[in-house]
Design a protein around this nucleic acid. Sequence first.
RNA 1: GCUCGAGUGGUGGAAUUGGUAGACACGCAAGACUUAAAAUCUUGUGUCCAUUAGGACGUGCGGGUUCAAGUCCCGCCUCGAGUACCA
Length: 1060
Amino acid sequence: MEYNFQDIESKWRQHWAENKTFRAADSSDKPKYYGLDMFPYPSGAGLHVGHPLGYIASDIYARFKRLKGFNVLHPMGYDSFGLPAEQYAIQTGQHPAITTEKNLARYREQLDKIGFSFDWDREVQTSSPDYYKWTQWIFKQLYNSWYNVDADKADDISNLEVVFENEGNATVKAETSQIDIFTAAEWNAFDEATQQKILMNYRLTYLADSMVNWCPALGTVLANDEIKDGVSERGGHPVVQKLMRQWSMRITAYSERLLNGLETIDWSDSIKEQQRNWIGKSVGAAVKFKVQSPRIGTVQDEKLVEQAKEMRANPTDAEAALWTELKGKKLGIKFRKQHLITDFIVDFVCLSKKLIVEIEKDHHGNEESIAKEKIQTKTLEDLGYKIIRLSDEEVVAHTEQVLKSISDALKSLPNQEEESNTNLEEIIGEEQFIEVFTTRPDTIFGVNFLVLAPEHALVAEITTDDQKEAVAAYQKQASLKTERDRQADVKNITGQFTGAYALHPFTGEKVQIWIGDYVLAGYGTGAVMAVPAGDQRDWDFAKHFDIEILNIFEGVDISEAAYAEKEGKMNNSGFLDGLSVRKAMKLAIYEMEKKGIGTGKTTYRLRDAVFSRQRYWGEPFPVYYKNDLPYLIEDDQLPVTLPEVDAYLPTEDGEPPLARAEKDAWNVFEGDRMEYNTMPGWAGSSWYFLRYMDPHNETEFVSKEKADYWNQVDLYIGGSEHATGHLLYSRFWTKFLKDKGFISFDEPFKKLINQGMILGRSSFVYRDKDSGKFVSFGKRKEYKTARLHADISLVDNDKLDLEGFKNWLPEYANAEFILEDDGTYICGSEVEKMSKSKYNVQTPDELVEKFGADTLRCYEMFLGPLEQAKPWDTKGINGVHNFLRKFWRLFHDAEGNFAIEAGEADKKALKTLHKTIKKIEDDLNRFSFNTGVSNFMIAVNELGEQNCNNKAILSDLVVLISPYAPHICEELWTKLGNEAGTLSYAEFPVFNPDFLVEANYAYPVSFNGKMRFKLELPTNMPKDEVEKAVLADEQSQKWLEGKAPKKMIVVPGKIVNVVV
RNA sequence: GCUCGAGUGGUGGAAUUGGUAGACACGCAAGACUUAAAAUCUUGUGUCCAUUAGGACGUGCGGGUUCAAGUCCCGCCUCGAGUACCA
């Protein structure tokens, strides 16, 4: 009987499905093993040969683990919400649920053909309400939690409310965007809206304004991906940066834990490194630069202004106490502090009543001060001001009385017109600071300018009149670029001076304030301090705009480039002079903290993740709004299902598609309206690995018991494109669910392997531009040709099927060809991404049909290392198919009859078998699937040469090969007399090293590192005797050329090297 | 730009800890079988020199460490992936 793979494969697929061979038990005496593939998104194009690559590898490993006696959980399901189905819906009007269902069916059909050992009873789909009910539930958990920094974990928001009621927020250490401090009394007095607004700043998922790429013409937000050259990829409409109120996830609260957790998991260094960089921890300092108003020049005496600001910044206790009572019109009228009137700074003044309140300084009998005070009093009274003088003690001890006397004085005074020219408030404005973060606080003295993001809130306020136009123009230009373009473009240095200056916190020198689009509003504080001496980008910027560059490094030349090394000594740096970088950093931070202008700080590049999408085909939020405040839907009402809409497009006023839903279309409707946004693609995929453990649980997302049993995913296989998205978000959710006590582990995936992409091999034909004839590859240079893709199904070994080509597309029906001399048409080829438009998509179906699933499985593995990207080419598939046929023939005689012999196996066969057992097991343990196939080939070739048909040997070989080629092995297994279906749980053969022992070893003998000849010597010969034997051999004489060897290296059992 | 990864025959790749470079397979060539073709089997196949024997060179490029480098170090080049709303 010939190897009839079609019959064999369909028979065993049916057997496995009917007997639920791969059902995982939720409890077992065996050790557990959880092997998972990354969630596929079922696109309309179906599977191409790249998709199953990882699934085959994980399936081989899962089957191997079953043979090794593990209880294996190996599930599959679909990440079935997503943009492509929605795009398709927009184009065709068909409901995305329908296309998704179709795509799922096609995926399943394709997957079924490849013989995976999935437990299909556990299938999950993110777009199924049974599933997203729990995605919504987890969202609610996040909403009802805050990050307690003291406990270093998430905690119930209700606990936080208790603290607020009793202590206010001053003592709370939390990951929060709340800045203002309030007391318990204040909290309790706030109305609900205010309280909710404050709580929002603590919640782990919260509403906030985030910058998005807004396309007004499409009425939608676009991914950076969807924007090409500043316009939308679809339609070419302009795109602008816009703030939008959206849900965010406070993933930043977990920055440090996400970073540290990497140490505990077995992932590739590259992917860990990518996550580390994504989280981007940097240690440095936050520094505040005071902004000098551009209008400051209008005041005669700059010193006075500075003095006023200084006094304002460092008030005495009495001043502070009194200001608390006067500010914000508490007496019903506006007071100003540290105000300049003519040449005098007064402590407090009410301009509309011309009342001045001065707090007496202790003169200690200083004559000059007393004289000054007298002049001041007289001058001010001449201008029509009334002055109240108070002592420190009076203000502190008898605040009430003081206030009463001020209040009385106010009542007695008439209203006056304010004299604007004396208004210091207007001149210096509110105290403005620009906060920057720097990893190099040691270079603080080298700050020659500051650069703000064009969107920075302060830009509008500080820009001088004569720069307004230029700044606005620059802002407009910047708003048209995507973040990525802004970061990527380093060749074009752009920026715009605002006309404003900041004051250097140590030297007081004026520092120009620029805006530049390489500074991003969303990163850090949206402002950087530029140190051209120490940073190349700043250096380039300074050179380009001709800004001064101060060299702050001792003995370093910075005329040609910045000096970014962290070595050397500081110079021109005040108190840092002569210090090393390390010491200067410490001292700089110390001095900043002492002066109150900065603090040592650790920041993370990681940003909170935007969790809203203005799309239809995603999870609805369990949220409604009442008076514009968000509220959660009760658990017993979940899930909030997707309502029907009349179109999958935004509304005319730019609201998301869900805004189209009628009230009745919602299964749950509360408040004024439901949330219109939906959740992003990563919502459902962040926790799905937990649902597989307990997929039909209706009361919990997963039972604690089952989560404890199955625990972490032991092996997770998928593409590296998920490095910083899915893999980071699911780590975040896992840590959160652990914090809340729902699961007992805080890393989801113990071991991760990234499969490389399978690239397509495109075929090309060459059309002569003059005649329109198609020129064969070898002759294309003789003509002026255009290269066109040809469908790879029409090409075999680069030879084009001419008739097929003519029938392929109507425009080629009358194609004429210029052939090679041998009469064939040869196509050109190139390796590219597999895509429909390149006509290079290879589906697994046709290969399964032609060669069988076992061949496909082995061939995909045989292509090369799992992790590496590789081009797809079916050239070698014949060889792999041949191997399976040879394997089959080992069990059959020349007439095709099943013919094996029981009895003792001979030594050679045992050696082949055990060599193979060892290699296969070693290979599987290091996930080297490709070398596994090679080793099977070697084994089958050797046994074939030996004419081995020994039952014991072949039985072990069947078990060995079965993870790779399960169908053929099941067939042979039953032919060997075993019960059908028992192969999957058979015992993996045990390696016995005794069969590999050899008496002799052929030593490669090298002279000066070059291998010259081999010499067979006993394996157990001692080193010195090997030396003698080598030197005594006549072949050595030629290479020694009569000289004595300088040195000899003998590695027993490996190599001999003679140094001449 | 930044971050990460990869470059080995005509092709996919092997070489696991620094120890025989090119296993295994494809392709190609020659031969056997055949009227012929296909299929199958046998042999050869890194490049260059040489009739042979044999020799020189050889793992993207340039240096280095070592008895010994595809493997380690330094500096480049090329290609691929990610870069926060594709999943």
